[in-house]
């Protein structure tokens, strides 16, 4: 119940913050000296990419907490899966907005540079994580396996972030999160970018809470289903067993009769 209330507040504040970002980003901020109006995508594309990193970070943390015995609980598994699913949505949006930005700014929808390629690999890895979760398994087994898979998939996240430093790329370097922390954006443009980060982080939180609540519901639904199948199979096997022992009794008594 508390989660439902939290979700409501998070969703409302995310909606307000996103609306403010859109208004500031599209109408209030000035066009960029080089990119003109195209630079307005800087208020959404990096923020959406940051949320994808954040989501996978949360998945990794929750998976570790599941794997560590003292904190092992299916709650962490639910959080890990919810965050990964939201992360996949944000990764897809990162690739889409990047492509839309790349066409007019670079001249191409796609190019095989390290940043773009590693991001696409990131999407495939976490789609694989979600596919693994869709395999029917006992809940504890699935939680353990997907937690291990999540730890492996996360290796790609720092590679994506550092790809523009480690390799030559068409993609530009970081605007804000460079090591020296000397941002290359100022004034209202910087504030709008920051607002975008806050807005999409709030949206992430609302989505994860919503997805987590659904996971809770689905889990109790599953439990109920399992106990139903159990009682069905139990009844079936008991009637089978009854029939078998009846037949055996018959056979036995006949052979006994013969033997006597």
């Amino acid at each position: 119940m508390k989660l439902k209330i939290a979700q409501r507040y998070l969703a409302a504040s995310a909606l307000v913050a996103i609306a403010a970002t859109v208004v500031l980003g599209l109408f209030i901020t000035p066009p960029d000296a080089v990119q003109g109006n195209l630079a307005r995508l800087v208020y959404v594309h990096p923020a959406v990419a940051w949320v994808a990193y954040l989501a996978y970070g949360v998945t990794t943390l929750a998976s570790s907490l599941y794997l560590w015995r003292p904190t092992r609980s299916l709650r962490w598994d639910r959080l890990a899966s919810s965050s990964a699913e939201v992360g996949v949505v944000f990764t897809a949006l990162t690739l889409i907005t990047g492509s839309i930005w790349g066409r007019p700014a670079w001249g191409v929808w796609w190019t095989w540079d390290a940043r773009l390629t590693t991001t696409a690999i990131l999407l495939v890895l976490y789609l694989g994580y979600l596919a693994l979760r869709a395999v029917p398994m006992p809940a504890d087994k699935r939680a353990k396996r997907s937690a291990i898979a999540a730890l492996f998939a996360f290796i790609d996240v720092p590679i994506v972030h550092e790809s523009v430093v480690w390799w030559r790329t068409l993609h530009q370097g970081a605007t804000v999160a460079s090591l020296g922390m000397n941002a290359k954006i100022h004034g209202i443009m910087a504030w709008t970018m920051l607002l975008g980060f806050v807005a999409f982080t709030l949206a992430y939180c609302a989505l994860v809470v919503f997805r987590y609540r659904i996971a809770q519901g689905e889990d109790s639904l599953r439990e109920r289903q399992i106990s139903q199948w159990q009682s069905e199979r139990l009844a079936q096997s008991q009637s089978d067993a009854d029939r078998v022992s009846e037949l055996l009794d018959n056979a036995n008594s006949k052979s006994n009769v013969k033997m006597v």
Binding site: A33, Q35, L170, G173, A174, H186, M189, W191
Partner: peptide, 27 residues
């Protein structure tokens, strides 16, 4: 047969004098 523009990661207002800055450094 193909040109790709490798723009920088800096963003600077096109007409700084026409824009009031909201905190941060003056544009």
């Amino acid at each position: 047969n193909q040109i790709m523009v490798k723009h920088s990661s800096s963003y600077i207002a096109a007409h700084p004098s026409r824009v009031a800055s909201l905190g941060g450094k003056k544009l």
